[in-house]
Design a protein around this nucleic acid. Structure first.
Length: 304
DNA sequence: AAATGTAGCAACCGCTGGTCC
DNA sequence: AGGACCAGCGGTTGCTACATT
């Protein structure tokens, strides 16, 4: 941990103030002050919180401490396997959007998830991708690529490859989210894969020209640039998932559709969406898609 | 027992985007 | 329009604890 002493930058008034700010580990007394202030007054402007609570910390530091450590609704302790599964799943969908992942894991913070990912899951996935050669060359290259894409989604552009099918991993019939403990043999099903293989030329987001050589730059548009060209049409699908029961039913049919032909053209406009050039992920109603994830039947957030 | 390596994690840093004036 | 301020985010750092040699 960082030393509590300040770093002593003081070039101007602001910096003079800054130089008085404590840094490093929080003492129990500081925690008490912040905690009782927050419980008494609630969250306001963080720099006010710092000042009014009598803390020689910057607002930013207070905010971080509160969010990552003091918040009463935080769930402490090790991640359950279900949480691991969820993290892996959501990471495959969202990339390194830790805050969004955290928002879907009650009681967990983005920092916690990020640390967990970087220290544990990433290594595990890396190991698994190395230790599980596939029986034939093409399979192994796909698996390897999948693995690399998976674990390397620290660059969110790669993670994006999974974003192209936000529904599949959890809801797909016969498809399971790989348990972190089973990853050596189970990768997330190749999302967007067609019957013939990896990101088929006809409807994958990669189109027909993707070069799967792993030492080449894999192309994937940045998440922000993904868009739903036919958003309105797609909303038709997504909106039907306004409650998660409907969501499950409807996504189930989507997935079944996918499994049969890996074409989703029956959902009007959907196929176009995969290939749209102007896709903006913000227009994906991921919130709707993931809302109420805590009520997924297989998830026991209390369990540990 | 001491030295060294490594994993886990708290906290900081720098950046971005939103809001207000 | 643009500058100041703030919240929030993701990446990174560096310390502690534990494992290994």
């Amino acid at each position: 941990m960082r030393k509590p002493e300040s770093s002593g930058k003081n070039n101007n008034n602001n910096m003079n103030n800054m130089s008085k700010m404590r840094k490093g580990l929080w003492s129990p007394e500081e925690d008490d002050k912040l905690m009782s202030y927050m419980l008494r007054n609630g969250q306001g402007c963080w720099s006010d919180v710092a000042r009014n609570a009598g803390l020689q910390r910057c607002g930013k530091s207070c905010r971080l401490r509160w969010i990552n450590y003091l918040r009463p609704d935080l769930k402490r302790g090790a991640f359950s396997t279900q949480e691991e599964d969820l993290i892996i799943h959501f990471h495959s969908l969202l990339g390194n959007r830790w805050s969004q992942i955290a928002a879907r894991l009650p009681g967990r913070t983005d920092n916690e998830i990020k640390n967990f990912w970087n220290s544990t899951i990433k290594k595990r996935l890396k190991k698994s991708s190395i230790s599980t050669p596939s029986p034939n060359a093409s399979d192994s290259s796909s698996d390897l690529i999948r693995g690399l894409m998976y674990m390397d989604s620290s660059s969110s552009s790669l993670a994006l490859n999974h974003v192209i099918d936000p529904l599949m991993p959890v809801f797909g019939s016969g498809l399971t989210v790989s348990s972190a403990h089973n990853v050596p043999t189970i990768f997330m099903p190749p999302i967007g894969m067609d019957g013939d293989g990896f990101y088929g030329s006809s409807h994958g987001i990669f189109g027909g020209d993707i070069n799967l050589g792993i030492d080449k730059d894999l192309f994937a548009p940045p998440l922000e640039n993904l868009s739903m060209e036919n958003n309105a049409k797609t909303e038709n699908l997504i909106n039907r998932s306004s409650n998660h029961t409907n969501f499950l039913n409807n996504t189930g049919s989507v997935i079944n559709h996918c499994n049969n032909s890996c074409k989703i053209e029956n959902i009007e406009g959907f196929e176009t969406c995969w290939q749209g050039e102007d896709l903006k992920v913000g227009e994906w109603d991921l919130e709707s898609l993931m809302r109420d994830v805590s009520s997924f039947p297989f998830i026991d957030f209390q369990g540990e």
